[in-house]
Structure formats: C-alpha cells, structure tokens
C-alpha cells in the first residue's frame, strides 16, 4: 500500500500491546462502526499514577491500528499527567507521517487515551458539540465529519458544510473552523 510509510506498516503488521486488561483501572472507547473506526484503550495505573500497562483493541483501517499501537507505546510507563498531554500531532510525528485523509485516526487515538483517563479520574464530560455556525446552525460534529472525510481546506469545508455562507459571512465561525482544520490537518 503506497500511502503508508514503513513505520506505519510495521505498527500495522506487528501491532504492540493488543488485547484487553481484565482488571483494568480504566477503559476509554471512541468512534463508531458506521464511521469505520472504533478504538478502545485499557489502562492499568498504579498508586503513583504511573501507567503500568496499556492495551488496545481497534476496528478500523491500517492507520487506525497503527496509531493505536504507537500511542500505547508512547504512554506506557508514563505518569497520567504526561499521558494527558499526548497530542495527535505527536502521534503522527512518531509514525513519521500519515496520509492526510488518515490524520483523523491520530485524533481518535489521542481521544481514546483521554477518555480512558477521564474514566480513571471519574470525569464525565458532556458530549462536546458546539454550534459552530450560528447563522445556519451547523455544529462541530458536522464540520469534523467533513474534515475527516476529505475537506482539508477552508474552501472544501465551506463547500461540504456551508459554514461562512450565512448572514454574518463567516464573521463568527471562520476562526473556529480554522482551529478545527489546524487540529486535523496542520501537519
């Protein structure tokens, strides 16, 4: 598969830390099957807040499996506060790059770890789904979905979702969309 570099292929063909931890301290799951990706992270954390063991189970493409694998390596033996700081950019860099349309997999991997840490710390977050475009009522999930499915520039996001085409001509939403584009695509 020409799109993936050797490191990605290595993590895909020989994934590290696959499986479940029966007496896990925390579990985090993100994604859904209809979108084609689900990631589940299992953490074993000791009394000092050190991640003693971490495993994953993933339903998804080659990049989804490779990002899960390397993300578990990156947080194993680390303190939970360090694990919190793992960004999707760091995951992509550690893999030596991903095709643009697969960057969303790295976001999912970072999200899955954060969700597992939330579970450990007893934090229950409301689903974040802010309305991005007030004029047309377009929410963040819609914009994220468009970016994950190939809208990598402002023009493409506008074409796919209609953001910035409301009455305020993007005065209120352009910056928020740029932020989301940066999160997913600025690599």
């Amino acid at each position: 598969m020409g799109d993936y570099n050797e490191k990605v292929m290595d993590h895909f063909m020989n994934p590290r830390n696959v499986g479940e931890i029966e007496d896990a301290s925390a579990v985090g799951e993100v994604g859904n099957a209809a979108c084609g990706d689900i990631m589940k992270i299992f953490l074993k954390i000791d009394e000092n807040g050190i991640i003693q063991d971490v495993t994953f189970k993933t339903f998804g493409c080659g990049a989804a499996i490779a990002t899960s694998s390397i993300a578990t390596e990156m947080i194993k033996g680390k303190h939970i506060s360090e694990a919190r700081e793992l960004t999707n950019q760091a995951i992509v860099e550690a893999l030596g790059g991903l095709p643009k349309q697969k960057i969303h997999c790295s976001v999912l991997a970072a999200d899955a770890i954060n969700k597992a840490l939330d579970d450990y710390e007893g934090i229950h977050r409301e689903e974040e789904n802010e309305i991005i475009c007030q004029c047309l009522g377009i929410d963040m999930k819609t914009v994220e979905h468009a970016i994950a499915h190939g809208a990598f520039t402002m023009e493409q996001v506008i074409e796919k979702t209609g953001v910035t085409t409301g009455a305020c001509k993007g005065e209120r939403c352009r910056e928020k969309v740029e932020k989301l584009l940066n999160k997913y695509c600025s690599l």
């Binding site: 598969m1 993936y4 292929m9 895909f12 063909m13 209809a34 084609g36 990706d37 339903f59 998804g60 493409c61 080659g62 989804a64 499996i65 349309q101 994950a148 499915h149 190939g150």
Partner: peptide
C-alpha cells in the same frame, strides 16, 4: 474493516479491493 484486510492480504501478496478502486481514497462506505 475492509482496508485493514486488504492491507494485510497485500502483505501476503494477495490483491483484492474494497468497494471500487475509484473510491478507495474516499472514506465513505
């Protein structure tokens, strides 16, 4: 997921496709 199956089979030298080759860049089902 189809792509991961395609990829691993390709590693063994077996070429198949998921959906149509024309749409393999799109992430939609």
């Amino acid at each position: 997921e189809g792509e991961s199956l395609l990829l691993m089979l390709d590693h063994f030298g077996i070429a198949v496709s998921t959906g149509s080759a024309c749409s393999s860049d799109s992430l939609e089902a």
